[in-house]
Every structure is written in structure tokens, then in C-alpha cells.
Design a protein around this nucleic acid. Structure first.
Lengths: 120, 120
DNA sequence: AAGCTAATACTAATGAATTAGTATTACAAC
DNA sequence: GTTGTAATACTAATTCATTAGTATTAGCTT
């Protein structure tokens, strides 16, 4: 899967939140300063060429929706990140967060349960 | 902290591995095709301007070393990632990995111990 | 000290991502 | 059916990242 550039990814995030949207609806989701409508339209078209979006035509306007799910993309993106920062080791990534104390004991217990139940 | 571009980050990764290095030593660490010596020198200079590297002069040549540690940078980079993909929730990121079953039971136990011992 | 070598400095060119203008189109309202 | 509106299409310009050329410099060798 192609890695998305920054702005492309912001736009995909907006679509993933909204599910289905007109370009008009995407713009408010983007961080300030808001880009020009046509800038977004261009990126959306590129995203469609890349296979990330598809559209239905409603009268005169296009209603776009994601063709690739956030989860699918995350899977690839995180794989890259783990390979880049953590030498391809998921445990060493988790150890990093452990050291950073970003996870509370309660959360930890919940996660352990979640992981174990997923394994069954 | 500034987010590094792809090549900049590759170069920083090389410095983080080597600790201290001449430009000459960085090049073999980079993925093929190896960039031109001067291309690397330019990026290294930019990285120095951005505060990621510093150097000592040894006779006629510069010996560069990281001013910002890999851990420091990771902390920021991962913060961005978690905010971007996981709505600022570290637990929800971990849940994602749990679902992906990237973590074995043994690894999980080790991590739980690691996290708990860090908390003391 | 003149010439050789290996480094850095400076800078122009390329390429990718992004922006936004102008042109075009389709439909709706009158 | 002409006009107005709001969308998309096309494309030129800008910006940022990256590359690599040429120029310069410092020190070593003779």
C-alpha cells in the first residue's frame, strides 16, 4: 500500500470520521488554515486515483467514500513505524510506552484481558 | 519539536546507531541506492541548523553527534502518531495491536512485569 | 611553499506535495 | 432557453525535500 503524504492523510482521516462526504463537508474537518476548496478537490481526486476513495454521483455533485478502511491503513502505517523506530519488534515498542508510563495499571489489566480473549 | 522528513530521519537513525560519526561513516548505513556524499553533507548541515546534530572539529573534518536522543525524538513522534491514528488514546493504540495479535502470551507477561516494575 | 587530497560550503536543479487560479459543466430557477 | 449557482476539471505556480554539481578550504607530502 502507498504511504500517504501529510495532507492526503488529513483528508482521509476526515473521510474515515464522516464515512461518506461531499468535499464541502471535508474542509471544516481540516486543521486551520483551511485550504482552498479546489485544493481539497485536487487531493481528493488524487486519492481516488490511488484507490483510497471512490464516489457516487448525486445529481451534479460527487459523494465520496473510503475504499480502504482506517484499520487497513493503520495496519500498514503502524508496521512502518514499528520497523522504523522499534527495529520491527512490537514488544520493544510496548516497552517504550511502558517506560513512558503512558498506561495505567487499570488500562493494563483491561488490555491483558482483551488480548487474552482475542487469542481464544 | 520539528518533525523530520524521510531522508533526514534516516540520517538521524544512522547517527543514533553510531553515536558519533563522520559523514563518510553515515553513508553505508543508508538504504540503497546510496546518496552522493554532498547530498548527505547538505542534510547533515540542515540537521545541525535544526538542532538535531552538533559537531566537533577534528583537524580538517567534522565529527558529528546527536544533540537530541532517539528516545526524545521517539517520544514526540509517537505522540503525533497516537494523536493522529488513535485519537490521543494510548490504550486504544494498544488495543489495536491486541486485535492484530502481534504480541505473544510470553511477551505479554514480560511486558506486564516490565510495566509494573517501572511503576514502583 | 607548491601540489595533492579529502573534507566542507555554496548553490542550482530536480522532483514531489500542495495550493489555488481559470475554465468548464450540469442543474435549477425564472 | 437564458441566467445564476455550485460543483468538478484542468493546469500553472509555489513550496519544500532532496540531490549533486562546482568552488573553496585546510592540512599533509614532497
Amino acid at each position: 500500500m502507498v504511504k500517504l503524504a501529510k495532507r492526503e492523510e488529513q483528508i482521509m482521516q476526515a473521510f474515515w470520521s464522516l464515512g461518506k462526504a461531499y468535499i464541502k463537508e471535508i474542509i471544516p474537518e481540516l486543521p486551520d488554515p483551511k485550504p482552498h476548496y479546489n485544493s481539497v478537490a485536487t487531493m481528493v481526486k488524487i486519492l481516488e486515483e490511488k484507490g483510497f476513495l471512490d464516489h457516487e454521483t448525486v445529481g451534479n455533485i460527487y459523494n465520496y467514500y473510503p475504499k480502504i478502511s482506517r484499520e487497513e491503513y493503520q495496519k500498514h502505517a503502524m508496521k512502518d513505524i514499528v520497523s522504523q523506530y522499534f527495529n520491527n519488534s512490537y514488544p520493544s515498542m510496548l516497552a517504550f510506552f511502558a517506560k513512558e508510563e503512558k498506561i495505567s495499571d487499570t488500562e493494563l489489566d483491561e488490555l491483558v484481558n482483551l488480548i487474552k480473549s482475542n487469542k481464544k
